[in-house]
């Protein structure tokens, strides 16, 4: 099946793959931080109980969750220039990924906060804590443990999503596979190598997610 699989070519192109891996890593890291900030803002708007903040947040989250990421990327990629805004592809891509992941992260955070038992909040109320104190001392410490595993799950999804940026010619891991395919026409070597590198990232994140699942979930103390 892979009788004429050519390892030499892979070694020859290894620098390209490694630089692709590096930019995938950097793009993911930057996007993750930005998406967390977006998610925190969107989540706090959504649970604020103030209608003028709540409705835009709901609209944002629902729109992001019910349209494909590729459409969002193309929307910005083809749309921003027609508004007269010209930014490099990589920035367009990061903005699209940030907005997309931000919506999912907002929902994860909201689920975490909702998972805290109502009785806990009542107990906080009757101890005379105000809203900020209840958040700080009762809700968030419990909610954070619950949110870390799904957040890492979202990070795995997001790393895979960065592959879509290759379609707007951002030079990342998948793009290096495309480059090698078009230069040598060796798609098997190119894309199986790309897949191998993604699997490496996947296993690291998966290990982290499983570990946090075991360690961080706040268990009831008897």
């Amino acid at each position: 099946m892979l009788a004429n699989f050519n390892f030499m070519v892979i070694f020859e192109y290894l620098p390209l793959f490694l630089s692709g891996l590096k930019s995938t890593f950097l793009i993911s890291l930057v996007t993750l931080v930005l998406a967390l900030i977006t998610g925190i803002i969107a989540c706090s708007m959504r649970i604020s109980g103030i209608k003028t903040l709540q409705y835009p947040a709901i609209a944002y989250i629902e729109i992001m969750r019910s349209t494909p990421l590729l459409i969002q990327i193309y929307f910005l990629y083809f749309g921003l220039p027609s508004l007269g805004i010209v930014v490099p592809e990589i920035q367009t891509g990061i903005i699209a990924l940030m907005l997309n992941s931000g919506a999912y992260i907002a929902e994860i955070l909201r689920a975490g906060i909702k998972s805290v038992d109502q009785g806990q909040i009542e107990a906080g109320l009757s101890s005379g804590l105000n809203y900020v104190q209840r958040m700080r001392f009762i809700i968030l410490p419990q909610a954070l443990g619950v949110t870390v595993p799904p957040l890492l799950g979202q990070a795995i999804v997001m790393v895979k999503d960065t592959a879509l940026l290759s379609l707007i010619s951002v030079a990342e891991l998948t793009r290096s596979g495309q480059t090698m395919t078009s230069e040598r026409f060796m798609p098997a070597e190119a894309f199986l190598t790309v897949a191998f590198f993604y699997m490496c990232i996947y296993f690291c994140l998966k290990y982290l997610a499983d570990w946090s699942q075991r360690k961080l979930i706040f268990r009831e103390v008897y």
Binding site: K160, A163, T181, A188, F191, L192, V194, M199, Y202, K206
Partner: peptide, 18 residues
């Protein structure tokens, strides 16, 4: 693990080109 660990774009390229 293979299907979940790699991006769908890469999978579709593998199916279509390999």
């Amino acid at each position: 693990a293979l299907a979940r660990g790699t991006p769908f774009v890469v999978q579709i390229f593998i199916v279509f080109f390999i």
